[in-house]
């Protein structure tokens, strides 16, 4: 068909009034690209119908325009907008979700916070280590103090015990400095000796404790004076049910069955 035949066929009127079938529509769209005079004729037909529609215009109710623009601006304010023209293959509008600008700032802030947090972590971990070490030292000190305190308490318990009978041992002429104090538990017979004032025993020698029972010395055990820690605390000797006096002698290491050199004696004062 040439342009004039197309124009006079009436197909352009069908197209303009919405009556054209899908095939006719495609045909007309091709022709109007092809023939400028067909395009001009179609424009004129459409303009005629447009004026027909304008002639039948009915003003919308008051406020309709404001409402429309309010809706448009409200939609524009939303950053998540579905763009209906983006069609997926199944024809369903694919929503386009732009990333809000402030998320970039949020991400940047998150990185800054992460770096800051890491620095703080290292700093605090070091501080924690130092503090933990210090706490360990304090714990050790405290344990030592507790130990000392406990020993002191047990020493004090011995002194305070209502059954304890103190006996002072005084140095003999051969060694006037050999002073010691014992506490004899009259109920149990236990003997506790405070050997802290005894001079250190010469090398290869050791102090031995004796009880004088019925005029005869009875071995009461060896006194440790070389071990500083123990020297300053009461040492428990052998128990005696009865004794007239107590004595300390200087013997060879390991002790002797009978005393060879008595250095300190003290009589029990019977109350």
């Amino acid at each position: 068909m040439n342009a004039q035949e197309i124009i006079s066929s009436g197909i352009l009127e069908l197209y303009a009034s919405g009556l054209a079938s899908a095939d006719e529509t495609a045909q007309v769209q091709q022709w109007i690209q092809q023939y400028p005079e067909v395009k001009a004729e179609l424009d004129d037909i459409q303009l005629g119908l447009e004026n027909y529609a304008l002639a039948h215009a009915v003003a919308p109710e008051a406020g309709a325009k404001e409402k429309l623009f309010a809706a448009i601006n409200a939609a524009a304010d939303k950053t998540i907008t579905a763009v209906p023209l983006m069609q997926t293959t199944n024809g369903v509008a694919a929503p386009v979700v732009p990333i809000k600008n402030y998320w970039k700032w949020v991400a940047a802030a998150a990185v800054v916070l992460l770096v800051g947090s890491t620095i703080l972590n290292v700093t605090y971990y070091n501080k924690y280590n130092t503090a933990a070490k210090a706490a360990e030292e304090k714990d050790a000190q405290l344990a030592a103090i507790n130990q000392k305190e406990k020993s002191a308490q047990s020493d004090l318990d011995v002194v305070n015990n209502k059954y304890s009978l103190p006996v002072n041992l005084n140095g003999q002429q051969n060694s006037p400095d050999a002073k010691a104090k014992i506490f004899w538990m009259t109920n149990t017979g236990d003997v506790m000796i405070d050997a802290s004032n005894l001079p250190d025993a010469p090398a290869g020698m050791q102090y031995q404790f004796w009880a004088i029972v019925d005029g005869k010395p009875v071995d009461g055990g060896l006194i440790i004076t070389t071990d500083k820690g123990k020297k300053y605390h009461f040492q428990k000797m052998k128990a005696f049910g009865r004794a007239e006096a107590f004595a300390i002698s200087l013997e060879k290491e390991g002790g002797n069955p009978v005393p060879t050199k008595v250095v300190s004696t003290g009589a029990v004062c019977k109350i």
């Binding site: 197209y15 303009a16 769209q29 109007i32 690209q33 179609l42 424009d43 459409q46 303009l47 119908l49 447009e50 529609a53 309709a64 409402k67 429309l68 809706a71 448009i72 939609a75 763009v83 209906p84 023209l85």
Partner: peptide, 23 residues
């Protein structure tokens, strides 16, 4: 209202070569 919203939102799908805007 809905028609004008569609016209506004879908304006990019209007193809000048296919006819007048009002159509």
């Amino acid at each position: 209202q809905e028609a004008f919203l569609k016209i506004w939102n879908n304006f990019s799908s209007y193809d000048v070569s296919k006819g007048r805007l009002f159509t």
